[in-house]
Amino acid sequence: MPCREHRLLRLRVKGLAQDNGLKTMTFQALAQIVVSGLLMGLIYALIAAGLSLIFGLMDVVNFAHGEFLMMAMYAMFGLVLALAVDPVLLMPIVAGLMFALGAIVYLGVVRHAMRAKVNAGMVQVFATFGLAIVLRGLAQLFFTPDFRSIPNTWLGGKTLNLGGIFLPWPQLFGGAVSIAAFVGLYLLISRTDFGRALAATREDAGAVALVGIDRNKVFTIGWGLGAGLVGLAGSVMAIFFYIHPDVGGPFALTAYVTVALGGFGSIFGALAAGVIIGLIEAITATILPTEMKSLGIYAAYLAVVFVRPRGLFGNI
């Protein structure tokens, strides 16, 4: 493998460029890559969580998931502008608004699409895909295609220096939010009556009425939760990422790969897959030109699909 030597060399060169001692620098450069990848991976996992939740619950892929992310970022942008309060404090509001949006999308669009008598699967795809296009169009109309960012936030642009490893505060915060969200989801699913209702609806939505559960209510709350989770992710990303109508596309694509890699519908598979994807992306970005940074993700995805089609943690 001639190119492996080449990659190692480039890693060393990158490390050298930053400091002097060859050995420690290589370690620091590697640690930097791993930690950056890990943090971004946690955010990818948080974006994918809602997609996975909805898919697991009702076998519907939300093709407007990226646009939900975009809406959350604009919601944060607008709230900061209107209230002059830091994004960190506004996060619960954005998540709440997104919960409402998710519930409304289920009640207003998806519920009706699911009733289609012919080609129900296709109808669902087009319903959410169409919604994505509408949401993008509305964003262009009302917010213009300009790139926006939220200036002067508590965390924005600040980094933590951990013995020569530089960690941006927004990503650190995002990682913490992601872990907290997954812990919350775990507790919700494993410790509450609603969590049990969610699990039962996943198993057999047609049977939950036998125990008095209204499946429409579970679906509505499921969509609310899914959108609320992506609302948390969008809130964090609004601190360190440019906001524009098309911002969700690439992240949604990564989220679809994350969900497939983790195992369709497995929420905690999405957590593991998100972290793996963050790491692969960070490593690929180091050894390949930046434009090619997605190559590693798709290579890993294809490998998993060929070797283990149900994904890493799927239990189909």
């Binding site: 049990r196 209702a197 039962a200 057999d204 049977a207 939950v208 036998l210």
Partner: peptide, 25 residues
């Protein structure tokens, strides 16, 4: 309460969870 002919249990949930779901209300 109705027990249909194919029972419609929640197959991958535990016996305990199936029972607890019965008392959901």
């Amino acid at each position: 309460a109705y027990v249909p002919e194919n029972r419609r249990l929640f197959p991958r949930l535990s016996v305990r969870d199936n029972l607890m779901l019965g008392s959901y209300l």
